Simulated assay, not measured.
Amino acid sequence: MTTQSGPEDGLLDPGLAALVGERRRLLNLAYRLLGSLSEAEDVVQETYVRWYAMSRQRQEAVESVGGWLTTVATRICLNQLGSARARREQYVGQWIPEPLPEPAERFGGVSTAVADDPADRVTLDESVNMAFMVVLESMTPAERVVFVLHDVFRYAFTEIAEIVGRSPAACRQLASSARRRVREARPVSRPMPADEAADVVRSFKRAWEAKDIGALIGLLDPAVTAIGDGGGHVSALPHPVEGGERVAHFLVQLAARATDLTFVERIVNGRPGLLAVHAGRTVAVYAFDIVGDRITHIWAVLNPDKLRLWTT
């Protein structure tokens, strides 16, 4: 007598390992599409729920399990992106994508194979750094989906067309407009090596701790922009602060008020960043965009809902 296997008796299902093996890729995709790890987790969960809701006969009729999961997850994300844009228009203050820690740093600098943290399953490459994630937010839902699928995950336009229900030509046009947004938002310059970027962030940290306005101005681009995201839960900048001198003075005033904070160097979305720690708890995560040897953007995430992976 044979029985149909499900998630609870997966050891009897020879295809379960391959099915579960798709989870990392789906989470990578959903995070880049939504900018929220918690929402990405929900999408992946819903995708698997829909898979297991099908009969075994329908599951066996699927030619490519990975293709089916990707199609379903992408369509869920596409539907959510429209409502997400509406929610973010009502968001209190500025909205910044949820920051991701480096997997090993989530566990005190020690990598562990048994850890099942969602952040461990998101590959931290250049397509997930904060500057790139912010540019993705400027795209329409269709542009974002097509661009991420093609330019990041290398899907062919014919495959994307089937997923999003558009023609290959329309998908090429969407990808082209998305690339134009990237070019307009990102200056053409060589990516700064991580060690050099870390030196800039370290110098910034020291200047900030010393309340050295001159040193801060020297590290900031004259057109630097600082943005804070408190989500209405904690006090944050209601509007971006622009200009090297204005940002430097703002940072010094902040340091003068928050004398009980400790700043710690950490990797944020795959690039050197800082944490603000109070009484052993992370209260802010700072991500930076560095062009040449100057900081051009500072993103400060203070919304506690977005700091769950950083709290200890």
Results as ranks from 00 to 15, higher is better:
43 V>N: 01
199 D>W: 03
260 D>A: 15
236 A>K: 00
9 D>A: 10
284 A>E: 14
179 R>Q: 04
277 V>F: 02
195 D>A: 07
191 P>H: 08
151 D>Y: 03
78 L>S: 11
301 V>H: 00
47 T>N: 12
29 L>I: 09
197 A>G: 01
38 S>E: 11
273 G>I: 01
21 G>W: 13
223 A>T: 15
227 I>D: 00
171 C>P: 03
101 P>I: 11
269 N>S: 13
61 A>R: 12
23 R>K: 03
127 S>A: 13
237 L>M: 05
142 A>K: 13
291 V>I: 01
176 S>I: 01
133 M>T: 02
84 A>V: 05
274 L>M: 11
188 V>S: 14
283 V>C: 15
98 E>V: 06
60 E>M: 08
184 E>H: 04
205 K>W: 08
24 R>T: 13
54 M>G: 07
235 S>H: 10
161 A>R: 06
310 W>L: 12
264 V>S: 14
239 H>E: 07
142 A>D: 15
257 R>N: 07
208 W>K: 07
85 R>S: 11
88 R>A: 07
243 G>D: 10
72 V>H: 11
74 T>I: 06
234 V>F: 12
111 S>H: 14
124 L>I: 12
47 T>L: 02
93 G>N: 10
213 I>P: 00
278 H>F: 14
233 H>E: 14
280 G>R: 15
296 T>C: 04
216 L>W: 01
304 P>I: 11
16 L>V: 02
25 R>I: 09
206 R>G: 03
88 R>M: 10
182 V>E: 02
179 R>H: 02
225 T>R: 03
154 R>N: 12
291 V>R: 01
176 S>H: 07
180 R>M: 04
181 R>E: 12
291 V>P: 04
293 D>R: 07
15 G>F: 12
295 I>C: 00
138 S>V: 04
232 G>A: 08
78 L>C: 03
304 P>T: 10
6 G>A: 10
252 V>H: 01
27 L>E: 05
53 A>V: 08
224 V>M: 00
117 D>P: 04
5 S>V: 01
143 E>K: 07
307 L>E: 05
21 G>P: 07
166 R>C: 04
65 V>A: 08
124 L>W: 10
119 A>S: 12
211 K>S: 13
114 V>W: 14
96 I>E: 13
132 F>T: 11
200 V>H: 05
52 Y>F: 08
142 A>N: 13
145 V>K: 00
74 T>H: 05
39 E>F: 00
227 I>M: 13
201 V>G: 01
21 G>Q: 06
55 S>R: 02
166 R>P: 00
297 H>I: 00
299 W>K: 11
260 D>L: 14
246 R>Y: 05
301 V>A: 01
104 A>D: 09
191 P>M: 04
142 A>P: 14
293 D>W: 01
169 A>Q: 12
168 P>H: 08
34 L>Y: 09
74 T>V: 09
250 F>Y: 11
210 A>H: 10
13 D>G: 00
36 S>L: 06
206 R>D: 09
33 L>E: 08
298 I>Q: 04
94 Q>Y: 11
240 P>I: 00
220 L>T: 04
291 V>T: 03
30 A>W: 02
99 P>H: 02
161 A>L: 01
220 L>G: 02
258 A>Q: 14
304 P>Q: 08
145 V>Y: 01
44 V>E: 15
72 V>M: 07
214 G>C: 07
249 H>E: 06
